[in-house]
């Protein structure tokens, strides 16, 4: 079936099997920042924003994306103009292997969109579905707080 979605601001029509996961569709269509870590909704590497909310692409069927707005980390910034969260992740040393990073950044973006000046507890809560084995999360939490500080209106 055809799926009509807006991905990173661009209207797209994808050919999909209705019963496949949104993760598999997005990766096939070249959104490779959406990572496959468990395909069971447990690791958070495939986190995307669906209508601005962080969700797991592996726990959605492709058909559910019909008419929705999707953001992947490719849509946030470029090497010349990274998003403040992306820059903060680099500056705070929050990127080790980088496999969980896109999902972490998107969960953080959903938080900052809703709560521009979160406290540490709110950051921890917003990122609780994104597993990381490299960092111990400390520098990731610091990066989100740093980005919030830099983005203050």
């Amino acid at each position: 079936m055809q799926i009509h979605v807006e991905v990173n601001g661009r209207t797209q029509t994808f050919e999909a099997m209705p019963g496949e996961s949104l993760l598999s569709l997005l990766r096939r269509e070249g959104y490779l920042s959406v990572k496959r870590g468990c395909e069971e909704g447990d690791c958070g590497a495939c986190t995307i924003l669906l209508d601005g909310r962080s969700v797991r692409a592996c726990l959605l069927l492709a058909a559910q994306a019909e008419g929705r707005r999707i953001t992947t980390v490719e849509g946030l910034g470029s090497i010349e103009r990274p998003h403040p969260l992306q820059q903060a992740f680099v500056d705070a040393g929050a990127v080790q292997c980088g496999f969980c990073t896109p999902g972490m950044i998107l969960s953080a973006k959903a938080l900052l969109d809703e709560t521009p000046r979160p406290d540490e507890g709110q950051v921890r809560e917003a990122l609780d579905g994104n597993l990381c084995r490299c960092t111990g999360y400390k520098k990731i939490i610091e990066a989100v707080l740093l980005a919030a500080q830099r983005m203050k209106p």
């Binding site: 980390v73 946030l76 090497i79 990127v95 990073t101």
Partner: peptide, 19 residues
């Protein structure tokens, strides 16, 4: 504390992994 060389590209979600 020099920034990690691959961090900017990884934070952008660049296609750098096997898959």
């Amino acid at each position: 504390p020099v920034a990690k060389k691959d961090a900017p590209a990884l934070a952008l979600g660049a296609p750098l992994f096997c898959a």
